[in-house]
Design a protein around this nucleic acid. Structure first.
Lengths: 150, 150
DNA sequence: TATTGTTATACTCTATAACTATA
DNA sequence: TATAGTTATAGAGTATAACAATA
């Protein structure tokens, strides 16, 4: 009965190489991704918010928090900093004054239209090294992996 | 000539679903992983350091920084906090007094022997839902994805 | 009473660069 | 001069819980 495990046996579990591969793949991707994001003067969470708001008519804090996977308390700070930079503004909808609609300002929209396509080309340069079927296989593999934690 | 891209065309690039899948898979895994780590009273980077030091005779700051993927300045703070908790100590090797050998204390070792196997079982419970060939396929897919960013 | 978002608190992690001690 | 690690600086993100305003 394997209810207990010593640390040396634990370290040899066959799933650990996959865990390491997930972590290093994500980190390697992020390092590439963030190198370009930081050139825009935004932090990665700020960039995420700008890109999430792009081509929308605005989002409420709770929707935005859900999409960008940060808590509402953290999002308050991120939106504050973007507001200070003049890239987003808070609008109070008359029908529900508990909410704020977060909207890109003209400056925010201009930045989005500039950096999002740029960033896309920056990523495309690397993803072009994968064939369409490889891309699909990777997506399927990731989806399968995710499913076991849901 | 596609040297430029508008934001709506950019958003439709076929690699974006794979990017999202990588991010959400990693985040979903981390949420599961960290739920257990936080119960140990350690932060994820602290847990990482303890597990990296386990079953070794110690490591230097620079080795440890490399293994855990944090900068040496950040590692100083992490090791400080672990030292305050009495889980690691800094040893000065006589042959090179510029270095510190970071070693688990008996308390640190005891914690490692307790939490690492526990954590392994906690992960194994989910990974057991994958067949060995699925696990291998996922690892290969991740490895291929990582390769394009290296 | 429930919901939306802010605020307060306190900490961890981050990067960068200057610095100390040793080699 | 080069290396190992710390310190200083400054900021960003994190969680949690209490709070105000509105519904």
């Amino acid at each position: 009965m394997n209810v207990e495990l010593d640390s040396k046996t634990a370290a040899k579990q066959p799933f650990y190489p996959t865990v390491r591969e997930l972590a290093t793949t994500y980190q390697t991707f992020c390092a590439y991704d963030e190198a370009h994001i930081r050139e825009t003067g935004l932090t990665p969470p700020q960039f995420d918010v700008i890109c999430t708001l792009g081509n929308t008519s605005g989002m409420f804090m709770n929707q935005l928090a859900e999409k960008t996977l940060v808590t509402k308390g953290t999002l308050t700070g991120i939106v504050d900093r973007l507001e200070q930079k003049g890239l987003v503004r808070r609008e109070v909808p008359p029908e529900n004054r508990r909410c704020f609609l977060i909207v890109l300002t003209p400056e925010g929209e201009q930045l989005f239209e500039q950096i999002f396509p740029q960033h896309t080309l920056y990523l495309k340069e690397r993803f072009d090294r994968l064939s369409p079927s490889e891309l699909k296989e990777i997506q399927t593999a990731l989806s399968r992996l995710k499913s076991i934690f849901q």
